[in-house]
Nucleic acid binder design. Structure first.
Lengths: 225, 225
DNA sequence: ACAAAAGTGTTTTCTATACACCCATGG
DNA sequence: CCATGGGTGTATAGAAAACACTTTTGT
């Protein structure tokens, strides 16, 4: 027992949304094992550091991205998952607006990039399996929690929210019914601003009402689209 | 990195149901720290053992209970959670019929017992927090998954299922609507047997149709009562 | 015959879905 | 004036909720 030699790491699956595409943040590994392969950002937990701290630190160190709302996803512990020996990894999960961060490679990472989740490269370790579970969770979340605040700009036209949902759901939704439903949840504040996308009628801008949004999340609203 | 000294353990939160009461399986610790305090069964993961194997092994060693469907709950990693040093614990979660097991204390456990979840003793480590999350998950589960197969006898009167749900939900449900809904799911096979509970009309016995039951679970049926 | 638990249908209300036209702007 | 995307209401169908009396047994 006292000479247990399992090592503990954390991984951060960070999803972004921009212009109808869901992407995930990956790094290209600088060192072996899996040198040159793409991987989910992450690394070893320090002895007296909390898991949340470790995952935020590693994410920031490796990609330049700093987020404060990472949610625990799952713990991966298959004995053979790391060729260096026994490494158990606690995976976390977060949502961001890619345009609010400059990504930049550093320690352990030769490169950092966003990949469309429909067009992923080969991945190191068991990261393909981790991503699969993360994507399932992302898709599952939108049926029981409001999503969007973390993924959209502060102010956005309603059509952005609509497009986010059609993208995540992978199917069309009825624009009128969707709007009725969301407006009915009272999470959006309508602004006095409009924005025009080049052609067509300019759209009213909305923003999430934070208080109401996080209250809804807490209550775990069942939210069938 | 290579001298990381975090230790990894697993804990098994096992719920049982009997006669209108939800209980959880706890052990009384034989050794320090927390000698004499009640705790969730669990222990350290061996170097080349899977997490699932570790949790089933520890549960069996400490309580005599052997289950094969433990689901991962959450990983607890607060640096101060164990006075012996840094121990991160992956908690699992399972459901059983208490009457199908003989519980028996052994290594590390001075005693084993079922406790009603409404009447818990003081607990070792952060086990109170772990149990809280496990109970929330248990209550959450019944709204999106059928529950009952694991908790009820093979053959049971419909009223047992009804009582299980009222207990878990903590409120009354409409007997007619509930019955309509469950029957409509096609998960129950009606038997030709009846059972009498002393007074009143004898009840028809049902059993779960395993195939249909696990199919429903997989599909993740939304199941509002 | 009465107490105790099991069994059973119908009506009402609410929610989800389907569906098509007008509006405001830029070019 | 036309192309483009934004904005809106109503009718229908289906699901959930409300609701109370009859049946079968033991005592």
């Amino acid at each position: 027992m006292s000479k247990q030699s399992i090592k503990l790491s954390v991984d951060a699956v960070v999803f972004g949304y921009e212009e109808g595409e869901i992407s995930v943040l990956l790094i290209k590994r600088k060192y072996d094992p899996f040198k040159g392969k793409w991987a989910i950002p992450g690394g070893f937990v320090k002895d007296y550091e909390s898991l949340e701290n470790a995952v935020e630190r590693e994410l920031h160190e490796e990609t330049g991205v700093k987020i404060s709302y990472l949610e625990q996803l799952y713990t991966f512990g298959k004995p053979s998952r790391d060729p260096r020996g026994r490494v158990v990894s606690v995976a976390y999960f977060g949502l961001v607006r890619p345009n609010t961060f400059k990504i930049s490679a550093s320690t352990d990472a030769e490169e950092v990039a966003w990949f469309n989740i429909k067009d992923l490269p080969q991945l190191a370790f068991d990261h393909k399996a981790i991503l699969k579970i993360a994507i399932e969770r992302l898709q599952g979340k939108i049926t029981y929690e409001p999503i969007g605040f973390e993924l959209l700009d502060k102010k956005f036209p309603f059509s952005d929210l609509e497009k986010l949902y059609t993208t995540l759901l992978g199917r069309d939704i009825d624009r009128r019914n969707f709007r009725k439903k969301i407006i009915g949840l009272n999470v959006l504040d309508e602004l006095d601003e409009k924005v025009s996308k080049g052609s067509g009628r300019p759209a009213i801008l909305f923003q999430f009402n934070q208080k109401r949004y996080f209250q809804l999340k807490k209550e775990g609203i069942i939210f069938e689209i």
